[in-house]
Amino acid sequence: MIKVDSLTKSYGGFTAVDDVTFTARPGRVTGFLGPNGAGKSTTMRIMVGLTPATSGTTEVSGRRFADLPNPGLEVGVLLDASAQHAGRTGREILTVAAHTMGLPRRRVDEMLERVSLTPSEAGRRVRNYSLGMRQRLGIATALLGDPEVLILDEPANGLDPAGIRWMRDLLRGYADEGGTVLLSSHLLHEIEVIADDLVVIGQGRIVAQGTKTELLASAGTLVRTRDVPGLARALVDADLDFSNLTDALRVDADAELVGQVAHSAGIALTELRPADGAGLEEMFLELTADTQRDTQSIHGSEGAAA
């Protein structure tokens, strides 16, 4: 269990994390989702005591992180897989961590096997590791002490599709055994497949949280057509609210009504279905657009469709 309560972090006048409150529960994978610079890493660093909070508190397994007697046995942490001495071998990095936690040597071999690093790879210096290998090593370090809680910052970065699949299964298994998993990502689709609960953050503030089912089942209908301006006009005339998605419209009405409006306006549709997840995607796109100024390309793809 991880509890974050009214957490705020300011750098000078800039508020990187703004009154963030959420809980990651045992038995569930909690996805911490937000565009780059949203404040995910800062929040996670505060959780493990690497960055002091301006105000607010965080708790892991009911205690402040600094009060954990041997944190490695209770919380597995991976904040940045590249933050390792380039001159150490992968095996040595695990050995040092195991020694700190007071674990036997054989645990190192077990973990290397669990993350599929071969003995010859484990004997190489980390300088020569690919990002994916570093992520595997980082995950091995986090799992070493068989902790009940995992805190992973963008662990899928640099993994190939098979690696992402492997990690998804691993975290799923971990949560199914009762573990608490908090993992961050800036990619909605990456986290959608893995998380049970979602905490969405943008510009330091939480903009949505809840179970994935709740958040994805937001009301509305997704509709696609080659004549977007025509459909938009018809929807305005019918007094229906709608919004632009990447390459479709999401309408606040059920599919039947939207179909009728389109039919009366004589507009051919290419797709019409309940907008599962579209609400979340839309919200996420807005967040991303605000921070990354990607609006141009979104409109561009619409223009091409119209």
Binding site: V96, H99, T100, M101, E177, G178
Partner: peptide
Amino acid sequence: VARPARPTPAPIPMSRIVSVELRKSFDT
């Protein structure tokens, strides 16, 4: 899925931190 409560681990002794630091000064 709730796991049985685990015993609280023993604190890390200072001697172990010293030996880890000694190791880290040799292992690169």
